Computed example of a mutant assay.
Amino acid sequence: MNRSVYITRLASFLPNEPVSNDEIESILGLINHQSSKAKPLILRNNQIKTRYYASDKQGNTTHTNTDLTTKAVEKLLDKDFTLEQIEVLSCGTTTPDQMLPAHAAMVHGVLGGIPVEINSATGACSAGIQALKFGYLSVLSGSAENAVCTGSERFSKWMLAKFFKEEAAKVAQLEGDGIIAFEKDFLRFMLSDGAGAALLESKPNPTGLSLKVEWVEQRSYAHELPACMYSGAVKDKEGKFIGWSDIDQEHWTAESVFSIKQDTKLLGEFIVKKGGELLKKIVDAKGVDVEKITYFLPHLSSQYFASRIEKELASLGMNIPGSKWFTNLSWVGNVGAASPYLMLEELFHSGRLKKGDTLLMMIPESARFNYAYVMLTVV
């Protein structure tokens, strides 16, 4: 069967007004009534200027993750493509509103419409691309003529100071300062809320541009490397990973078990190296000349990694100069599984693309080192 898959529509939804660096702690709250000592360093390195929260300036919830995702999907719809035409709904997120039902089921429940096939990908940054690949394969195989794929996050609720209150009090008793570990503080100044959605179809747009999906490749290095970013678990002194269900309930809040934590040492050592290693294998196998791509869209958790990625790729014979890079991290923030969609949506609607342009997307995930690469051609 000679079929192709095209991204024909892209949409995004960012809640409320942009939040500046000075406003972060006024919304998320101060841990132990004091501003983070690490905040200036973290913001200087990540170079994020604004981000979005699914809450108002008083910290009151305005949107759930389901709401964010639904609103992004609704922006794909019009008289030419209606809710009742959706065949597959595939949703990826790190931060579902509940453990059960699955996130895609909740989104379908709010959207309404007709019975559809659903798929939920729950992981970290690459969950959105895992959702995209399910939709891509569904259309490519002929089992569906279209698929709506999404990536979304509502990180802000996981970062509220009140969830660290007991741990901070415990630390204050032991150390006298009440300052939580850097691995937890680090992410409070990087993560953002929002959602992106893409419509995949078996035919390109009759008018206007489409993005032909050439390939989607993903690989995990969990067989080699330990968990780097995690939630609902702790590591003991020996580095053993212990999940929440094996931890006594009274320790859940005292140790902020459900906060998102990042091993920054592990991150710095492997995230760039393994990503370059995989891309080299993929482009060699597919005969891709990376230096000839028109745009490179890397999902960055921090601008700190940009120069390191550029240097690593060049050392492997894959020179992609900064002039070809497109990222919106500085004004959108790190939106995890939504970030690839938000980058692609902004570039797609920027007026910069022309037929024949090639786009290479890179989505690294540090949770346990999973990587995704996507190649697109403008048609």
Rank of each mutant, 00 (worst) to 15 (best):
I242T: 12
L347K: 00
I320D: 06
K237Y: 10
E255A: 03
N334I: 02
I320G: 06
E238M: 08
P340T: 08
T294H: 12
K324T: 06
A254S: 14
E291A: 07
L279E: 03
F258L: 03
G239Y: 11
Y341T: 04
M318R: 09
K355E: 07
G243P: 09
E255H: 14
K311P: 00
A285K: 13
L313C: 03
G322I: 02
E277A: 06
M229P: 00
K274W: 10
A233I: 01
I282Q: 07
S330W: 01
D246Q: 14
S302C: 04
K355T: 05
W331A: 00
Q262M: 14
R352E: 12
G287D: 14
T294W: 10
L353Q: 07
L300K: 09
Y341F: 15
E269V: 01
V272D: 05
S245W: 14
I242H: 12
V283I: 14
E238P: 02
S231N: 10
A227T: 04
T327E: 00
N328H: 03
G336T: 15
S245E: 15
V257P: 08
S323W: 07
S307W: 08
W325F: 03
K265L: 11
L297I: 15
E269C: 01
S323C: 06
Y295F: 14
A337D: 13
A337S: 15
L316H: 04
W325A: 01
S339D: 10
L347Q: 06
F241M: 07
E277V: 08
K274F: 12
A306Y: 15
H299F: 13
E345Q: 12
L297K: 01
S231M: 15
W244P: 00
W244M: 04
E312H: 12
A337I: 03
N319Q: 13
S220M: 08
I247D: 13
V335E: 02
G287L: 13
Q218I: 11
L297C: 13
G287P: 09
